[in-house]
Amino acid sequence: MRVAENLNEALHGLLDDDPTAYVIGEDVLDPYGGAFKITKGLSVRFPGRVIGTPISEGALTGVAAGLALTGNTAVAEIMFGDFVALAFDQICNFASKSVSMYGSRLPLRMIVRCPSGGGRGYGPTHSQSMQKHFIGMPGLSLYEMSPFHDNREVLASMLERGEPCLFFEDKILYTRQMGQTDPMFPVRRDGELAIAEADDRPDCVIIAPGGMAHRALAAMRTLLLEDEISCRLLVPSRLYPLDVEALLPYVNGVVIVAEESTAGGTWGSEVAHLLHGRVWDRLRGPVRLVHSRDSVIPTAAHLESEVLAGESTIHHAVREALRG
């Protein structure tokens, strides 16, 4: 099953199981079913609880918060994750603050879905990875979609937190298969952490969010076949707050964090900081960061691939790290 279908089924399941659940967003109604077809079939099956809105990201996120405030479960879709900037106030100054700023905990069951990332030629304002802008906001959790985490389970985890969650969905994943990996690197799960490795004595550990996982796996294949370098891939579902303790048993020696974000203030730097504080003595050197260039994301394919971090960036970084 493709990742998009898995997510669509997860939303069907959520609306089916939870009579207070709403899905709200721009162009989410059938027969269109959302710009990426993730909401297909929902409005026909659950009329009244799937709400198409005007082009008003701030308002639709605020409405989702209002629904959550009155005890409902709200899933808001931001058509392109880049537009979540228009909902920054509602997410950061209202919804996440409301969880704790009134003195006692006010639980909110609310998810804001953000189709993210480049690689599809949508250009500078439709290709960004916005995760880093939301890291460190009290009362706000960040998750990323992954082929190794069933989306029904991930939605449930987010809602259980009782605070607003951003769900970043790398658009490239939509058309890939759930669970798709390289036969050389079987994937297993330890709690919410997905682990892929060829053997249990890797030369290098790569930590990557879901959208980067298949690029990391591709790099791991060539590294193993061409350079006899063995890597372990770790894919957490929740990016922030990161369950760093869950990573520790799998981290030592050479560690790389790979993500698609452009340079500067990245998620990887937060991960590195957390690991340095806990396992510095087990590392061969500082955690290395792989990310896209300090650049806007161009539209033309040849320019876009120059900017975005991918298989070759990871491959290069691993070789550099082991050489160093």
Partner: peptide, 30 residues
């Protein structure tokens, strides 16, 4: 919360201008 951020039963105040309007619309929808 202090002067500007108060929540009690069905009363809520926030300190950012206009921010409550979409939230209130969501509550009204409910």
């Amino acid at each position: 919360g202090g002067s500007q951020h108060i929540h009690r039963d069905r009363y809520m105040s926030t300190g950012v201008q206009g921010e409550s309007m979409p939230v209130a619309a969501g509550v009204a929808l409910h």
